Amino acid sequence: MKKILSLVAVIGLTTSIYANDNTGCGLGSLIIKKQDTVALQVLAATTNGTSGSQTFGITSGTSNCSKPNNYVSNDKLNRFVSENMDELALDISAGHGETLATVAKLMNVEDNAAFSSKLQANFTSIYSSENVTSATVIDSIAKYM
């Protein structure tokens, strides 16, 4: 029993070291609101880890978690950009166009004019070589949002 408790404590401490704000988001952060001692932080982190709620919370944006803005995981955006790399390059260099407007829509951009202008000004860093990948283009575009 002591070995199990020691293992749980080590896992909890390790999780709390690497998690956001010591214990991160998830069920533990919902149940244990005041985490002012190491023991409470370990308990919250262990609850997050053992319940699987932290992973679910991060993907869904629930349980005190924020959903990351990682556009590379957006399948529609990935497919569209990879199928339209040349057209997108032309639109970005011109500062307008149908392909650029579609990318803006897929990325939930509110101000298309400012977005297009910013991308046009940074065209050479977005399309840094003729062998640039669509994932790199998307990551570069996301930097200018």
Rank of each mutant, 00 (worst) to 15 (best):
I141K: 04
L119A: 13
T14E: 01
Q41T: 02
A9L: 14
L77N: 13
T102N: 14
M85Y: 12
N69S: 09
G97R: 01
N108Q: 15
N69T: 12
F115C: 14
N20W: 02
T124E: 14
I141H: 02
T47M: 09
A121C: 08
K76A: 15
T99K: 07
D36F: 09
S53Y: 05
D86M: 13
Y71M: 12
C25V: 03
S16R: 11
F80Q: 10
K33V: 04
Q54A: 02
Y144N: 11
L90K: 13
I4L: 03
A44T: 13
F80S: 06
Q35M: 12
L30Q: 04
F56E: 04
S63G: 01
Q120N: 14
K3P: 00
R79S: 15
S128K: 15
N22H: 09
S73P: 00
Q35E: 14
N69A: 12
Q120G: 08
K105N: 05
T50D: 05
F56N: 04
S16P: 00
C65S: 00
C25M: 03
A113S: 10
Y144G: 05
S125A: 04
T23N: 07
T37L: 15
G49W: 02
N20H: 03
L90I: 10
T47Y: 03
S63C: 02
F115T: 13
